[in-house]
Design a binder for these strands. Structure first.
Lengths: 219, 219, 219, 219
DNA sequence: CATGAATGAGCGTTCATTCAT
DNA sequence: GATGAATGAACGCTCATTCAT
């Protein structure tokens, strides 16, 4: 945003701000605009014109920052996946670690925070990235597969500890992932006012934990 | 007019019927091929050429059966939604009705049967229809909203009967819908061998029912 | 129209009417329908479907009577030109011939009678045939050139007799042809009620004759 | 935003103006080429490829200057009608005005000058515009109707002054319009050498004036 | 670096014509 | 002869990308 301020005020500290910072700022600005365009129209119905018009740049300038329309889409997705990966931390089960349930809750909360904060990106991932082409679908699928792996390993660990009822862990992992995805989609896609974050997290966790716990009545 | 009179003569009807049967069969064949093409490439990356090449017909022939590329896509989606609507029956709670749980199970089973039977169509709905354009997205969303309404009403009823724990019914309904969608996507999207239908139904139901039940340990 | 009756009543005198008569009648019927279609839409905007739909025949049947869409258009035009040629008789100036002015008047009258009787064909010739392609344009042009030749020869004859003022005969011949064409176009193209045939003939002749006569005040 | 500010800066205006001049020139060039193509082939037989090939530009470039094939045709026609309207000035009959006959002559001369100068455009109007579709036909007809109105009013005025013989003014106006149109068509359509402009104007006027004058022998 | 006019491959669609029944 | 489903060449138009300025 500093960069955007710079762009809007060319006379502000021109010597202080380096070239590459201006460049990075402009790149961010284009990404920001592209996100809105892709979110609204999808990849195919969005044109490079839509993006450059919204960004207030020339068509050629676009290609100084991104090699193709596909490139900017991939950048957007990669940023999102990166952010999601950071927010989903493996449950640490060492003796000195925080309560695993609290860690789980924090994961769900961090994910939903991003969902609420950047709904356009979530919409793009849910509705456009999977259907773009086989490579994009593969990228998304790989991400989900890693999440599924994490969930599955947690389930297996819980089963070993007697905290989770025995089950087909891959299927149940899918169920758990599905609850979060669907709520995320519901939150970002409808125009109605959504419940507070706390409530969302609470309901999702209660539903999922009871679904897998050996002691569901305690939750 | 001589010819028309002959055509209107009843003794030509068998051949006319034969014609329309051929027509219907060819239409189905084109739909079948289009389903595979759309499933693999998505709407935008699939060309009419792809469809007619696969169907072994001329480009012009396509337009004898469908008014546009969009038309055949919509036909495919409408057929799927129609089929899904038929397979999802509202839970009947009259005194002489079958066990509600059995009805619920039958619904889930019928849906998953279709998922297994026609994975391409499911892929199209999940990955391509939602992102096609606003009209298509609206159609899909409306369908899900109706399903969500059904689930929510069932939850509310269960709460009144003391069978379902009090909860934010819309959120929990989303969770339930999400479990089924995610499992459906998982089943259709991976190349690995999927568990038998019974196991899928069993696991989904157990997870979801425990998630909402006041007596989860009994499930 | 006989043909239409025959077509609509196949049981009427089937043995009396020969095959070729039925064929000729059907051909005429198709020509009749095509005339209306071409007149309204022009050659390019009219489709073979438009013609066969209006004629109540199958698409393939059309090609049993005409080799192409272009063929039926040419037939229509040839019929019109034939008819026009018959109605435009060279002025006979033999000693026993009728008054040349009466012959001239009869020519104009016969042409305008056709114009009023078959306005669609006139519209096609004026607005569509000339612009169809170079061959069609050439056909029309050749027809007009012959008419111009006739007028020019009449003018030259009149000059020799001292009845027509000396002039550039080709240009004046164009002027005379132009008066008739424009009135014909005006008559067929507007939806207002047109003056009676007699008045049209009278005004055209008076205008043209005064334009060329050495004794214009007598006309 | 820097760039936009620069663009809005006055010192860049010269180059911007230069751009638009290049643009206008190229637009004119495409119009010029399209005129030749349409004149030779007509609207339907002319393809956008024909135009861009002749203009030496890429297919896409065409659409930077015109929204459609129809658009460029309409532009051509509108330019012609505009030019014709400017060349046909209403006869001014005020006390200090030039001789009405001279004004009339000047009108005919200006029109024929355009005819000789831009024969392709005239051919397009005569042979292609009228038959293109109902909208185009209406545009042309409206133009002619206005011309007919002008002629008719002049005739009525002449009758009141005793200079023009009483007549059916609409019919006679058509005759007059017809003389000019036919001569124009004859001049542009034949490959023979045409008479000098003066002769054309002279003959048309003499023919028409004698046709309507109360004193034809004086002309 | 920024610009935006120019490019041209590629697509959806139409419709005159054919031919098996 | 009559039918009409099938054909496929041809066309108008779009838009991601390039490159001279």
């Amino acid at each position: 945003m500093v960069s955007i301020a710079v762009i809007e005020n060319p006379w502000t500290e021109p010597s202080v701000v380096g070239q590459s910072e201006v460049r990075a700022a402009r790149r961010k600005h284009i990404l920001y605009c592209a996100k809105q365009v892709f979110s609204k129209k999808g990849f195919h119905n969005a044109s490079v014109s839509d993006i450059v018009d919204r960004a207030g740049i020339a068509r050629g300038t676009f290609y100084l920052y991104f090699t193709s329309k596909r490139d900017i889409f991939d950048s957007l997705m990669e940023d999102l996946l990166q952010e999601l990966r950071q927010r989903i931390k493996p449950i640490d089960i060492g003796p000195d670690s925080p309560n695993p349930l609290d860690q789980l809750k924090a994961n769900v909360r961090r994910v939903l925070e991003l969902v609420i904060q950047d709904p356009e990106l979530i919409q793009i991932m849910f509705h456009h990235a999977a259907g773009l082409d086989q490579r994009s679908a593969e990228t998304v699928r790989t991400f989900y597969d890693r999440v599924l792996d994490m969930i599955e390993r947690s389930l297996e660990h819980g089963i070993r500890l007697g905290l989770v009822r025995p089950c087909q862990t891959r299927i149940v992992a899918s169920c758990i992932l599905g609850t979060i995805k669907e709520v995320a989609d519901w939150v970002t896609g409808r125009r109605r006012t959504v419940p507070p974050l706390d409530v969302l997290v609470e309901e999702i966790l209660r539903f999922g934990l009871r679904g897998v716990s050996t002691q569901p009545q305690d939750i």
